[in-house]
Design a protein around this nucleic acid. Structure first.
Length: 421
DNA sequence: GCTAAATTCAGAC
DNA sequence: CTAACGGTCTGAATTTAGC
């Protein structure tokens, strides 16, 4: 088998740069929702020592001194750019798995061409048509293609494309010996230190670890990783992802929230967001969880964190019904006197819309009227823009809504935002 | 003491 | 100027509940 992993370089930062070419060569960072932490950096920002997931205030002086350009995250823009990149990949190979907003696996079996050349062509095309630079790693397993991609990105001599599929074993091992254990797909912050203690420090060390030991000290996923490093494919390409099992919508607030009224407005908004996704996937939810908590980072303030869950009256995607349940749960967990920082809802026990499990003892049919109302609402909002029509429960002012002070325009999806001067 | 369900942990990006 | 630290999702392991 031959896999390719295509990964957009510094994706969010690159998207910002496409529509603002003056930023070429300049340091850029993109912030999380609520402008709290750094979630993407251009190469220039990385070179300044700005690390991933750092709270902005901790590197504010580096930002100021070096005139780093700072953006709030603009998911509408990034999502649209992602679609454009994926569309090009899909016309280049028959089997493509969209792995994340900035990554895709491709199956390259049966391609006669030299695979490095093939990769270079894709790279050129994506850059020309979208403005986004990508790196491509080719290998006999997904895990190795991830490593190939990392190496392609890191070492300029590969010009963005590295094919490990035709390398002799000893050469491959030399490369794997240069890959830190924490950079192996599936080895995270708990396993890396544990493995290092046992003298497994590189991808090569892990490749030659004993199966029994790995099974005992990690788990079956660890074993799969090891086999994949040996070139034995254990993780298949998933072109059609399984339907979602849960849908969450959770946000930090732009300022502390104390009142139940405001929490209810926020939670109603999160239900709206989650049920839109639910209906888009033609699913319905059977249960809901709600949680609230104070700011964990404020040791000077009293802390409170609670969650609660309930079954919905019947499986549904009707937002007013779900808001009612969410508000009921909020009533049970809310305690006055705390400064809440974050709230969220999670829809669970999802099922396909057309396969409602009928309860033997309950006379409940999905109300066709409710379904119609939701369809009409979705139609209006897709035609006239999100939020054209929304529940009164969201409130009008939303003083708690997240900060996004430095957001770029939605250049590719909104007519009013296409031109900048 | 078993299985099933719920919860927690760890991982990814 | 203040004060300031993401969001979504999955699969396995672990814990708890129900018999």
């Amino acid at each position: 088998m031959i896999f390719a992993l295509v990964d957009c370089n510094n994706f969010y930062a690159s998207c910002e740069r496409v529509f603002n070419p003056k930023l070429e060569g300049k340091p850029i960072v993109v912030l999380s929702n609520n402008d709290g932490v750094i979630i993407a950096r251009s190469n220039e920002a990385k070179a300044l020592g700005i690390k991933m997931a750092t709270p902005v205030f901790k590197v504010q002086n580096i930002i100021d001194r070096n005139n780093v350009h700072v953006f709030s995250s603009n998911y509408v823009l990034y999502g649209d750019m992602s679609h454009r990149v994926i569309a090009i990949l899909k016309e280049s190979a028959p089997e493509v798995e969209i792995y994340s907003i900035d990554e895709a696996f491709m199956k390259l079996d049966g391609i006669q061409e030299n695979l490095t050349e093939f990769g270079r062509n894709i790279r050129k095309k994506v850059l020309k048509w979208t403005g986004i630079p990508v790196s491509i790693g080719v290998a006999p397993t997904k895990t190795l293609s991830k490593i190939a991609n990392e190496l392609a990105k890191k070492h300029p001599q590969f010009k963005g494309v590295l094919d490990l599929s035709c390398l002799p074993e000893s050469k491959l091992d030399d490369l794997l010996a240069k890959v830190d254990i924490s950079d192996v797909w599936g080895i995270g912050r708990r396993l890396s230190p544990m493995l290092r203690v046992h003298n497994i420090k590189t991808a090569r060390d892990l490749k030659y670890a004993s199966d029994q030991w790995i099974r005992k000290c990690i788990n079956v996923l660890g074993l799969k990783t090891v086999h994949e490093l040996r070139g034995i494919p254990c993780i298949q390409l998933e072109e059609n992802p399984a339907p979602k099992q849960s849908i969450a919508s959770t946000r930090s607030f732009g300022r502390p929230v104390m009142s139940l009224t405001e929490l209810k407005q926020a939670v109603a908004l999160y239900v709206t967001i989650a049920t839109e996704k639910l209906r888009e996937g033609r699913q319905i939810a059977s249960a809901i969880q709600v949680f609230i908590h104070t700011n964990f980072h404020r040791q000077d303030q009293k802390q409170y964190s609670e969650s609660a869950a309930t079954m919905l009256p019947h499986p549904t995607s009707h937002s007013p019904t779900i808001v009612k349940s969410a508000h009921y749960l909020l009533d049970t967990i809310y305690k006055p006197g705390y400064k809440y920082k974050k709230a969220g809802i999670i829809l669970t026990k999802l099922m396909p819309k057309d396969q409602i499990q009928l309860d033997l003892f309950k006379e409940h049919k999905e109300n066709p009227h409710q379904e119609k109302v939701m369809q009409t609402l979705d139609k209006i909002n897709s035609k006239h823009g999100r939020n054209t029509l929304s529940l009164a429960a969201l409130g009008k002012t939303k003083p708690w809504k997240m900060r996004q002070l430095q957001k770029s325009k939605r250049f590719t999806t909104n007519w009013n935002e296409t031109i900048t001067i």
